[in-house]
Design a protein around this nucleic acid. Structure first.
Lengths: 103, 103
DNA sequence: CAAACGCGTAAGTGGTAACTTACGCGTTGT
DNA sequence: ACAACGCGTAAGTTACCACTTACGCGTTTG
């Protein structure tokens, strides 16, 4: 699953946002979320497959943290969209202005 | 539905990408996609609700085009993520370097 | 070494959303 | 005016995915 689809789910976006804020363990995340701990685990797996998070095991805690890799891909695709959309939008505005001038 | 969830679906992302490339009618989109025309219509409704596209009726054709508004919100949220993630990532790298120096 | 912790995963369930077909309304062409 | 086009929407089906409970494995603590 790619980063787009991974962050498409609201719960997963919430988990990711918390990990962006600070690294956290699975139980820690589950405590402040309206879903069970296994559910969080499953979401983390998806985020990991999308290269959006990384795990580091310390003792019996699995510390998850946000990772730039997946986000970078997302960002480049979004910027590509943004560039052309904005260009076309501006071009359309200028076109309309020109149309107005020749009433 | 917000822009994140709207673009979370692959088919919808495909439709949006085509509209970023150039404005198109519903039938035109459906012809080059593996889904029926009504399915495209339903996806376009979602994209419209997320302020990602706009419609302009010309004759009996409904011309859809990508619109910056929904994308702008998405971009700002993503940039917020990106900023802190990258900061934390760099900070971690420097921390590890410092740890290495004091072996 | 036993008990408790932290977690991943398997199995099963329910809800939902993506899709289909069918239909009806406006618009264009003959 | 009538037929054809372009589209939106309603209704129904299906597949998937988010979630739960149950279980088992490694790790730490007493």
């Amino acid at each position: 699953m790619d980063a787009w689809t991974a962050l498409g789910d609201p719960t997963r976006r919430g988990i990711f946002a918390r990990l962006v804020d600070r690294p956290q363990s699975v139980t820690e995340l589950a405590e402040e979320l309206p879903v069970s701990r296994p559910a969080v685990s499953q979401h983390l797996r998806v985020l990991k497959e999308a290269s959006l998070v990384r795990v580091r095991q310390v003792g019996r805690h699995h510390i998850y943290r946000a990772h730039p890799q997946g986000l970078a891909q997302l960002r480049s695709e979004l910027d590509a969209f943004w560039g052309t959309v904005l260009d076309n939008f501006k071009q359309l505005a200028e076109q309309e202005q020109a149309d107005d001038r020749e009433h």
